[in-house]
């Protein structure tokens, strides 16, 4: 077993909902959730689900090959600024290598991340794709 059931259950909000922390003092947002604001240290925070909508700050096309996932390269990895202000690292899918660009508007989409053999769990999580419809439900 390579994927821990309690772990993906515990982290379900971060993995499936892109839950972010909003600071009620400095106003900045961050991902993943934390007990205090990573920018100002305030514990006057609230957690909300991100709209999942954002914009590509910059991106790289990666050919870095990892055992068992050789077929996934090239893949597009991007720094994305969510509309709520939080910056996240993520993979952009359903995009041609000539279509990816800085400023591209993207939306979060639930995708398969990893598979644990033929009988283990499938780990899902948020990736991003160019906006074609609504964001994830909040």
């Amino acid at each position: 077993m390579k994927i821990s059931p309690p772990r993906i259950w515990r982290e379900r909000y971060n993995y499936y909902m892109l839950r972010i922390t909003q600071c009620l003092d400095c106003g900045r947002a961050s991902y993943p959730t934390s007990l205090t604001c990573p920018y100002c240290g305030s514990s006057n925070i609230r957690t909300v689900n991100s709209s999942g909508l954002g914009e590509v700050i910059t991106y790289t096309i990666s050919y870095f090959r990892i055992e068992g996932q050789e077929d996934e390269v090239p893949k597009v990895i991007a720094l994305i600024k969510l509309r709520e202000g939080a910056i996240v690292l993520g993979e952009v899918v359903d995009v041609g290598l000539s279509e990816i660009r800085e400023g591209l508007e993207v939306e979060a989409v639930l995708r398969r991340l990893k598979i644990d053999g033929n009988s283990g769990l499938i780990w899902y999580g948020m990736k991003f794709r160019p906006i074609i419809g609504a964001g994830i439900p909040t």
Binding site: E11, T58, S62, E67, I77, A78, L89, K114
Partner: peptide
């Protein structure tokens, strides 16, 4: 390379298999 992923946060970068070389590229 699979083990190099572990140098980053397994809850954040790790689940996409993002490695330091990707962040350096960004």
């Amino acid at each position: 390379n699979k083990y190099m992923v572990r140098l980053l946060n397994s809850d954040v970068e790790g689940r996409y298999d993002i490695v330091t070389v990707n962040e350096a590229a960004l």
